[in-house]
Design a protein around this nucleic acid. Sequence first.
DNA 1: TTTT
DNA 2: TTTT
Lengths: 158, 158, 158, 158
Amino acid sequence: MSLNKVILIGNVGKDPDVRYFDSGTAVANFPLATSERGYTLANGTVVPERTEWHNIVVRRDQVAFVEKWVKKGSGVYVEGKIRTRSYDDQSGVKRYVTEIHADRIEFYNTGTRPADGTTTNAGTGFQQGGQAQQTTSYQQPAQPDISSESNSADDLPF
Amino acid sequence: MSLNKVILIGNVGKDPDVRYFDSGTAVANFPLATSERGYTLANGTVVPERTEWHNIVVRRDQVAFVEKWVKKGSGVYVEGKIRTRSYDDQSGVKRYVTEIHADRIEFYNTGTRPADGTTTNAGTGFQQGGQAQQTTSYQQPAQPDISSESNSADDLPF
Amino acid sequence: MSLNKVILIGNVGKDPDVRYFDSGTAVANFPLATSERGYTLANGTVVPERTEWHNIVVRRDQVAFVEKWVKKGSGVYVEGKIRTRSYDDQSGVKRYVTEIHADRIEFYNTGTRPADGTTTNAGTGFQQGGQAQQTTSYQQPAQPDISSESNSADDLPF
Amino acid sequence: MSLNKVILIGNVGKDPDVRYFDSGTAVANFPLATSERGYTLANGTVVPERTEWHNIVVRRDQVAFVEKWVKKGSGVYVEGKIRTRSYDDQSGVKRYVTEIHADRIEFYNTGTRPADGTTTNAGTGFQQGGQAQQTTSYQQPAQPDISSESNSADDLPF
DNA sequence: TTTT
DNA sequence: TTTT
């Protein structure tokens, strides 16, 4: 009787690190920031804004999606589970790192635009990035991204 | 062994309807919209954008917060549970309405501003609406809404 | 900017109703009960146990899994979204019904056993029913279900 | 625009460690185990059962509830957020530990019974542990744990 | 260190 | 209409 569920919405801290293995498997990693607003208590105590960094780990079908679309600054929704793994550091001391293994990743509409000036998330709600990739292939969207560089049909993740 | 958990992020459809009862309890209701982006399948089928309307019900301590701060257009985060209740309509037919009973409501940073031109959600992440109530104090609203107009049957948005 | 997420753990009220369409698609429906324990307030008020019934709708790959394994009484974990649809009743009056469209269904370990006396959920945590179906096919489990009726390899959902 | 949400159901690994501070605040810590069932892939690969340990941190009103009711072996539902903090170890090396700061803790019905033979969770669904605190009153624990032993550096479970 |  |  067990449940291990994490839901995060935040911003990607740097371009994902993608590694391919001989076995054919692939893994993508990236840091994701979530922030809580600061506030001031009635007694005057100031609780400052706090940013939390999460290590996101992506496997299987989602890796290609992440490699192609997720960039530093992207606003993403991540669902997954917590996993803590241990390793021995240079001194032979056991150390631990906690990661979020993503089961689902979707773009979140932040209204922000990538470096090239195009708007990637013009619509409302989630772009069905992660899910769409697994179950269907999409044609040209009704309101296409008019960036000429990325306007070929198979370039679109949704 | 049971769990009934709902997490919504969306926009408020109209100003909350707040009712105070002789017992001293209060209830606030408002419709909340969540939207899924439309998309086009490979076979050409267009799946249009879809907006879902949720009936949010707020009780206890959160009511004053809702009455004061939640407005038509507000972007809010709602956590709660699903409840379906029945009532007899004018024809004596049993009808059902499903509502989301909120355990927690927070403002979501949409960057939008209310009608008076002030910015309510300038920061990042959640405004600690629900939680703040426990740690800071809100003014009692001057004028509870007990307007008879808003109490008619067709006031129900569903 | 939108999220519509439901997480339920409960018991199936009756065997799923599965319908196949000419288009090749299929849909399964079943009622799921979640229960809140009753309790007594400090002032003596008794708040009785309350059972909530949810209409679960399953599509695509999960349908076959549901048809084969989900039965009246099953303890299941359901993740999905809320959807309210309308229809005109016999009198031509528009009526609404709220359903939970499942994105993920898993067995939950209740320790209960089906009518035939076999134990279907012997282990801890989730049986990876829904997910496994989509991504891998499993061999004989390490601790096989020893019900002779259901012991053929392709009978196993995990 | 941010969300940091964790939902866990699992078993408590040892009796909570509760510390009271001069400021009047209190903190409780305990390890929580969540388990995924093992399984065997079609290619024969055995994926063993995996247990994940989470460091749960409880503050404020929930501490007294935890001290009184949560014990080694308890089945609990925890909602909260992920927080990673750093500290310098004996060698002056910066180390990190990830914790789950609980916003809500409830008993989960495991059907298990404590050492004294009484059944604490006889009903279905959650015991309204966290919530009950708001609506009913708990006894003040007779003997707050202020043992100096439990305050040493290697008291850290990670 | 838990649980099934 | 389920479950404890």
